[in-house]
Design a protein around this nucleic acid. Structure first.
Lengths: 136, 136, 136, 136
DNA sequence: GTGGTCTAGACCACT
DNA sequence: GTGGTCTAGACCACC
């Protein structure tokens, strides 16, 4: 399965958010294309060893945001209308997590160069490979 | 003394975290210097229209991280000696917000180089001159 | 599972600190092992006849120090990977209780050798034959 | 004056406790002998740049414990009846700070050998000469 | 006046 | 059910 979703149970990020994020990333990386059908709620829940409610919640959030489309009786599909942001809009949308990162880094005493290095290292480990978080 | 702390009530970020973050930013920006006294728990609580407990928690968290020092009966002060972690521990402590940033950036369609540029720009705006020299 | 936590109400040590300390001791003594689930906040609060907030604070402090891990909706668990400080930071973090011990020992008339012996004896009683650190 | 009291303002130990502790240590080290007169509350307060109330509190606590004796109109003197503890009693009296030290050390990840080394180092930096007049 | 602790009770998000 | 947050109000120790 090309979704390659990994759940990090130890962290503080809600599981439904992790699923939603990684679906979006699969979409952005091209592993999931417009119109593709996603695994059923129950199938994905079983694969991830997670409560079906949690998967349903993730799908519902994405449908609400227009990322996915639900066709009752058929399944859930990647939406055909993908949002495209201007550069300014992209920057605005990452402003909050960016601030959070910088703040936390300053608290633990990191210098700017070290923060940039940490980001580079993190991006290097991305690839089309599995989703970011370590597994437990 | 104006720390210019603003609370975003609607957001999902806890109030005590918002306070702590903005104290750190004031420290990093030089608006708050080592040894400076912070507003009292009660005063800041009244100014922000927030429960004193919430401010106390923000302060307590920063004291635990070595950013502030509390002298009961006197007040709370910006610490001189910042806590020192090993590099591995520093990385561990920013892993979560770093992942959050990368996730969000990928979702909105940013490429690695653009993410790094956004971070650099953010850091440049933060740094008042790297060593105590402000105002150029 | 019995953590055998006992609260000394009359003393000057805060309750949340007593709880945190005894969780650490259970961890060091092997009564609590990595990955084990701890009693829920509400359950432990009821058992100790203490406000849930107080237990929550003890748990939260240990989570911040990397001793425990909290999974909202699931429970609190003993962490696998302990926080790592530099040696200097470790010394800084025990400086205060170390001074308190030496002060008290000198007050009651103990000589250095006797203090060291008391510590050795205390450590021996703590570590039941685990002739070293535990590794994963 | 041979009391050589030093106040650490940054720590969490109350100032009156610091004063009382160091009077006891001066007594244990022989720098202060039975029957000696102590500096007046106001004199010591001025010397330490501390509120007189704080010094008075320290003296009062020591009088209550029988370490000092107050002679109204004359001053405060080191008590002639110094308590002598059996070894078991000494151990009992340091049990609490000893536990606090061990707990904190375990939290920050120190191994037994490292804790003992830290104590030795701390003791080495002490005033030598219990019962003598040796000054540093 | 200051910070620190504890209680009580409420609400939220997650599973 | 779980943990997390916030409010309200009280009490304490310290300076």
């Amino acid at each position: 399965m090309s979704l390659r979703i990994a759940i990090a149970a130890g962290g503080s990020v809600p599981i439904h958010r992790q699923i939603a994020d990684q679906v979006c990333r699969a979409l952005a990386a091209g592993r999931l294309r417009e119109g593709d059908q996603l695994p059923s709620v129950r199938a994905l829940a079983e694969e991830l060893v997670v409560n079906p409610n949690t998967v349903a919640r993730a799908y519902a959030d994405l449908v609400r945001d227009g990322v996915l489309e639900a066709q009752p009786g058929k399944g859930v599909f990647a939406s055909r209308r993908r949002a495209v942001y201007t550069k300014a809009e992209r920057l605005r949308r990452i402003a909050e997590p960016l601030d959070a990162l910088v703040n936390q880094a300053l608290i633990v005493g990191m210098r700017p160069a070290e923060i940039e290095e940490a980001l580079s290292e993190r991006l290097r480990r991305l690839d089309p490979g599995a989703g970011g978080h370590r597994e437990r």
